[in-house]
Simulated assay, not measured.
Amino acid sequence: MKIKNAEMEDDINRVTNMLMLDYSENKKIDQLMPYTHPDKETVISLIRHLMILVYPGYYRNKVYHGYTRRTNVQMILEDVVYNLIQQIKMVLPYLKDNKDLDDEALTKKAKKLTFAYLEKLPAIRAYTETDVQAAYDGDPAAFNKDEIIFSYPGLYATLVNRLAHGLYELGVPILPRMMTEIAHNMTGIDIHPGATIGKYFFIDHGTGIVIGETTVIGDNVKIYQGVTLGALSTKGGQSLKNVKRHPTIGDNVTIYAGASILGGETVIGEGSVIGGSCFITTSIPPHARVSIKNQELSINYPKSDADDAAEPKDVPLDNRWFYMI
């Protein structure tokens, strides 16, 4: 049955009136200020352009392919500078010290932060070079380094974290977390921009990894899918802000799939290996090997109809199964 246009318009007007009435209650989510809030699509574009600057031989804006590398870099930088200044300017008023700054002062501060950030790019590139090498050295399935750069989610998530961490170190709010959550959405790897990560870091497979804000990771660390480097408890909420809540991982540590290492006082000593599914809330000495005792394996084979008929009907089903983690 066709809905008449007049009926449709009446329904749309009715729902519009309902929403406008609801908006008038001034909920936090009703702050409709598109020109004073950061824009997610712009942040995604910034990540893409920053990746071109990090990997000039792999990612490029195809419009610029006829120019020299210097010209390409300058053109991309112009775009990054303009958008980054605008986005930083939008988020600076979230900080108490900036609430009363006028437009000119905010622009000046955003420009200063933008160029301080861009000056970090050579150091970020140096760390990324070591991450690519660590992935190649640590994964026999890697065909070559090109494959790693183009396709490994762990490398992408780590690079976005390094890019976001640079802004985080400068005290820029909101934007760093937006960047890492974009990478989280794409890769299933959740790294807070506050986490400090050393050189030669390799995430293998990666899905389900969580690395908390105050985590510190040394050099030559390798972690597998499902690893959590988290806090023991967040019941304190905002009272725990700026408190070391997440573990410290020493150099040359390997953490296998599904392990959880929790707590700000927890330190994993240099050269240790943490086995899969371990749950750790206390420090581990250097060069230790941590594992869970092997679980019993129980296999229930298919039975014939005759076997089923002979089996007592009052045997609890649970007695024939063994729970395994």
Results as ranks from 00 to 15, higher is better:
Glu9Cys: 09
Met18Val: 04
Asp22Gly: 00
Tyr23Asp: 15
Met33Glu: 12
Thr36Gly: 12
Pro38Asn: 03
Asp39Gln: 14
Glu41Tyr: 03
Val43Trp: 02
Ile52Arg: 15
Pro56Asp: 11
Pro56Val: 07
Gly57Val: 07
Lys62Glu: 15
Gly66Ala: 02
Thr71Cys: 10
Asn72Leu: 09
Gln74Met: 15
Val80Met: 01
Asn98Phe: 14
Lys99Ser: 10
Leu101Tyr: 07
Asp102Asn: 15
Thr107Gly: 04
Lys111Gln: 12
Thr114Glu: 11
Thr114Phe: 09
Thr114Pro: 04
Pro122Gly: 06
Thr130Trp: 10
Asp131Gly: 08
Gly138Glu: 08
Gly138Ala: 02
Pro140Phe: 03
Ala142Glu: 03
Asp146Ser: 12
Phe150Arg: 13
Tyr152Asp: 04
Pro153Lys: 09
Gly154Glu: 05
Leu155His: 11
Leu155Met: 13
Asn161Phe: 00
Tyr168His: 13
Gly171Asn: 12
Leu175Met: 02
Pro176Thr: 00
Pro176Phe: 00
Arg177Tyr: 08
Met178Asp: 05
Glu181Lys: 00
Glu181Ile: 00
Asn185Gln: 10
His192Pro: 03
Asp204Val: 01
His205Trp: 08
His205Thr: 05
Thr207Phe: 12
Ile211Trp: 05
Thr214His: 08
Gly218Glu: 10
Val221Ser: 09
Val221Leu: 02
Lys222Asn: 08
Gln225Val: 06
Val227Gln: 04
Leu229Val: 06
Leu229Ser: 12
Gly230Ala: 01
Ala231Thr: 04
Gly236Trp: 05
Gly236Thr: 06
Asn242Gly: 00
Val243Phe: 10
Val243Thr: 15
Arg245Leu: 15
Ile255His: 01
Ser260Trp: 03
Glu265Asp: 15
Ser272Ile: 05
Gly276Phe: 01
Ser277Tyr: 11
Cys278Val: 03
Thr281Leu: 03
Ser283Pro: 03
Pro286Asp: 10
Pro286Arg: 06
His287Arg: 13
Arg289Ser: 11
Ile292Arg: 00
Lys293Asn: 14
Asn294Asp: 13
Glu296Phe: 00
Ile299Trp: 11
Tyr301Glu: 15
Ala306Asn: 00
Asp314Tyr: 12
Val315Glu: 14
Asp318Leu: 13
Asn319Cys: 00
Arg320Phe: 05
Trp321Val: 13
Phe322Met: 14
Ile325Pro: 10
